[in-house]
Each structure stands twice: as C-alpha cells, then as structure tokens.
Design a protein around this nucleic acid. Structure first.
Lengths: 334, 334
DNA sequence: TTGAAAGCGCTAACAT
DNA sequence: ATGTTAGCGCTTTCAA
C-alpha cells in the first residue's frame, strides 16, 4: 500500500519541466510563467508531493527549528513559558523541538546535543545541570543558546530570569507593612538557584527593615507534607511564634495551606508563584510571568540568530504582588 | 569567531583514516581496531565534531522524531498528555517536535504538514479541524498518524480517547445513588466532541434510571462567568430547583464554584476533569488520565512505525470518580 | 579491518 | 524564463 514518496524529480517529469523549475515554484521564486507554474502545481497535487525538509536543510543549513530543553514540560509554569516562546516562534515561522530533562543533568545534556545534532537554529535551555561547558563547541559553531528561568553554569551566555530576590523582598515588605514582624519562610531545596534567591530576598527585606530573624522561622527544603508540618510547628512553638508565612513556591504553598487547615491554624500567607484557583482560595501571591519569560528568551534568541553578537545579556522579568486576602490578614486577627 | 563546523571528512583527515571508518566509529559498527577507534575518538573530541542529523536522515530516511500537534501545550491537560508521550518516546530514543494549533484548523494543518515535510517518523494529533483528509497523502506515503483525545474527521485512523460518556454516566449515577433526582448539567460548547459525549452520558444515566430531565437543568456553552451565573439561576428558580450539579470540564467547574460561592448557594457538585487543588477545595471529580492517554497514543504510534498494519484501532481510557465531599452532599443538607 | 565510489533530495551558481 | 551541474554530509554498497 505504501507508495514511495515522490521527489521533485518525479514532479519535474510529470510536469515536463526541469527539476530546478519545480524548486522555483515550491519556493515561490519569481520568473516562472503562470502556465508552467500551473503545470507544476497540478503535478504536485496529483502526486501528493511534499518537499523533503532534510534535503533542503542539508543544502541551506537552515532548520527552521528551535530546540527547547526543560525540566518538565508537564509543569504548568514551564508549559506557560513554552507557550510564550511559541508565540514568538510562530511569528518567525519556526518550529519547536522540545524535551524534558526530568531534572537530570545527563538527560539535559543528551537532549541539548541531540537537538544540536539536528542542527537547530538555536537552543533555549531551562538548566538543571550546573556545568554547561559541553555546549561551548556548539556555541562556537554558531548555535546561539539562551538560558531561561535559571542561569547557566561555567559558561557565559544570554539569560532571562524572574526577579526572584525582588519578588521575595516585595512579599516580605507587604507583610511588614501590614504590621507583621515575626514572619516565617518556607523555602525549597537550597541548592536550587531560585530557592536561594528568594530566600535572600526575604532576609534582605527583614534586615533592611531592622527586623531580626529568629532561627526557627526559616526552613529550607520543605517539600514534603511531614517536613512542612514539622517546620510550621517549630515556627509556632516557643515565645515568639510567627504571625505570617512566606512560601517559596507554589508546591510549598499548597502543602502549607493543607497543613494549616489540618492544624486549624490561621496565619497571614503569601505564596511565591501564582497557581490555578489561588484566587478562589483567596491566597495572596507574588506572581511570576512565565509567558513573558518565554517570549523574551525567544526574542533574544532570534536576535542572536539574526547575527547580533553583542556581549551576553541578562534580562530580568519583574514580579507582581496580587493581594487576595491571605496576605492582608492583620497580626491582631490571629 | 564562528568556526565552520567540522564534518566527518575533517575528522577522517585529522585521524588519518577514511571517511567510512569515522562513520563506523560514530555509529558503533563493529570491526574497527581499538587503536584506530581511539584515534578517531580523539579527533572527534579535538575538533568538536557532532554528526549532522539532516545528512544522516537524508540517507537513512529515519528522523528519530515524532510530531505532536495540540490545541495548546500550555494547558495542563495537554502538557500532562505530552509528558505521557515523552515517557514512551524516551524509551524509543525519539524526540518530540511539537506545536500548538490554538484551536485553529488552518494552523493545525500547517503544523502537521510542516512536521511531515521534516519527515517525522510519526504524528500524534489532538484535532481541532473536522476534516483530516489533508493527511491522507502523508499516511499513504508511510507516516503513521494517531489521534488523541478527539477522533479525526473524514478519515479513518487510530484514535485514543477518554471514556467521556462513561465518566459522565458515572458522575450522574453517583449523584443519583446519593439521593439526588434533580441534577443540573453545565456543559461546554456543544460543537466540541468531548462536550457532546459528556452531555450524552448524563442524559443516558438519567434516562436509564427513569429520571426525567427538565429543560432548564441543562445548559451548554457555559463558558463565561455571566452565562454560568444565569444558567445556575435558571436551574434554581421555579418549583423544581436542582440539588446537584455536574460541570462538563474543569474550567466550568471553577466558574461554577465561584458563582455558587458568590450567590451563597450550596449544591452537590461533581466536576469532569480533575484539577490542581480540587482536593484542597473538597471537590468531587471524574478524573481523566491524560498521561495514560499520551502513553497509549505513543505506544500505538510506535507499533505502527514498527510496521503493524492492522486495521485502525480505537482505544478508550476509563475515568475514575474521586469522591472528596462536594459530590457526597445529600439533598437533605441543602 | 579498511577504503572508494555512488547517491539520498534538494538548492546555489552558473549557463542558455 | 528555463535548464544543467555540482555538491551539502552522510550511509550504503561493493571492493581491496
């Protein structure tokens, strides 16, 4: 049943023209008589011809494809980022080759190199690995690389980041302005870049407001139900219990909200990262803009692909505080 | 700065062997002396050689790539589906070329054909268009196509679907078993396949239980805040107000929950589709398994790519009812 | 075990 | 306006 695919040559024979004329029609080059053009188009239609992209690419060196390596494309944050990229790519008639690294440095590397082997025109990476020197030969060979959400390791390259420090500072300042002084911080694993930055923003805001931070108020690596519950208990025990809480990412926000509900405790809460239904739950958050992260990364990439060879750039996307109730509870209400 | 990329020929010269020997090493073919192999590997390392995938593909006809056309990769449901596919693809050493159609039939077509032009080994499509005859030449030429989540239009092809009718029937039966008789249904736009199916499941369950369905209880196209609110008001007005509600998808569930909260009305509620934090909100849902949908679609595709040419198959993935409270409210409590 | 030659399907450069 | 030739970088086939 499986007819072998017609090539330009087959079309040329069917239309009684030369191969090059078919190529002209397919590529919309001028200087083809309407009459011949029609003959060629008919032949294309009849045979069901579709140009072979690999052959074309081998000749032109242009893939019309961008590679995207991310931790998990199923994560809403990254799929929103991916969507932002796609908007820009569509405008540039480029397609997306994507793969999830599953937070495994070896997979990240494998994917990135597989994309380079396919000669993508550019690469956008949400890094998991801390050493990207493996990309140096590719970058030298002319494949531009932009890092998104986290900075690269051991190489210098374009990077687009969320203002993690600023967002966290903003959340802390908001709670301080609301009259809170004993503010707890529940962070992600401290070897994650964004976790460090957000933690730092909290500390900076407290310090610059002249507020002390007691040791039991801060817990990093609160990524399980048990750990969150224990950390909260510790924050609330003793003579100086916290009256407010900042959660370092949306997974932690959910765990903390669950735990607070289970323990029947009221606290002012601000989460870093917006999440679906946070509005329904009246949770105040510092929202990132993953779509914008993706758009900016893609824009920058296309600039590089267009030959911009200025020194590497770092773009920082601001966050927005969305007050919804949970972050506006006064300390007196608790 | 931009050195042109080394080819196998360059490597061959540097290692003082023939081009074919380099090819053998790169492809792990046997019958190469350890000594020569080492020389070649050294040259590859030194030059930073990376095989050109297009050239390879042009020769072999194997892309090692699968195309994926979806409505919106940023939608959590589809990104979960995509992740399921990816698991299978990783096992088969294949990469994913993906694109969002934005529910536009023209974009869907353009993306699918762009993938075919790149000679993907197979195609997975979440259809938006209702006419997929444009894929016939490609399928004839040997590119297997599997449709996911919705069936294709005007062609016969492999399809993997959720049991929409069954899930909806299950939700209705659950409410009936809980003592409800006046059950409302808030559905999506009726020209969407899944919306029709779910609506049908509801009607079937009511009918087979011998329960009448009053006209104001059913509303399709409830996709905006205003429409949902109006539909709910209508369901609750009159002599026979509903005591329970089924929401046709998770977007509608959220709108309905918002509206019910705003109107300060209590109803038993079951949503079709699980959503993040539905557990936190105690919302009973009929959960689909998008990951499984993706895995099955990919498995089926790989079978076809491996030469399976049996008649086209239709796989139906069952749903699961997750009782969390909102669907277990007895009518007497309202 | 290794190499030489041909050619995959297309486009670029150069005729006509 | 159309055609001819060469060659992109690799794998396949065949020979040494």
């Amino acid at each position: 049943m499986e007819r072998s695919r017609p090539t330009m040559k087959d079309v040329a024979i069917a239309a009684r023209v030369s191969l090059k004329t078919v190529s002209r029609v397919v590529n919309g080059e001028p200087s083809v008589t309407p009459d011949t053009e029609q003959r060629v188009r008919d032949a294309i239609e009849t045979l069901g011809f579709l140009r072979n992209g690999s052959a074309r690419m081998l000749r032109t060196g242009q893939a019309g494809t961008v590679g995207f390596v991310v931790e998990d494309i199923g994560d809403p944050f990254y799929s929103a980022l991916s969507r932002g990229m796609e908007q820009v790519m569509r405008a540039h008639e480029s397609l997306l080759l994507s793969g999830s690294s599953e937070a495994d440095a070896a997979i990240e590397r494998k994917l990135a190199l597989a994309f380079c082997e396919r000669r993508v025109d550019g690469l956008i990476v949400v890094p998991t690995s801390t050493d990207h020197s493996y990309l140096l030969p590719e970058m030298t060979a002319g494949i531009p690389v932009v890092f998104a959400d986290r900075p690269p390791g051991r190489i210098d390259a374009d990077t687009v980041l969320t203002d993690n420090v600023g967002g966290s500072r903003q959340a802390t300042a908001h709670l301080l302005a609301g009259g809170h002084r004993r503010i707890g911080y529940l962070g992600d694993n401290p070897d994650i870049f964004t976790a460090q930055e957000r933690h730092r923003g909290y500390l900076e805001a407290m310090t610059s407001a002249g507020e002390p931070v007691a040791e039991p108020w801060v817990a990093m690596g609160s990524t399980t139900t048990g750990k969150v519950r224990a950390d909260l208990t510790r924050m609330l025990a003793g003579p100086a219990p916290v009256t407010a809480l900042i959660c370092g990412n949306n997974r932690i926000s959910v765990l903390a909200l669950h735990a607070l509900a289970a323990l029947d405790i009221q606290l002012a809460v601000i989460g870093f990262d917006d999440f679906e239904f946070a509005d329904l739950l009246h949770v105040t958050v510092v929202a990132q803009d993953p779509g914008e992260l993706g758009r900016q990364a893609a824009e920058l990439l296309f600039q590089r692909m267009d030959g911009d060879s200025a020194p590497s750039r770092r773009i920082v996307i601001p966050t927005r505080l969305l007050p919804r109730g949970s972050g506006e509870l006064p300390p007196s209400a608790l």
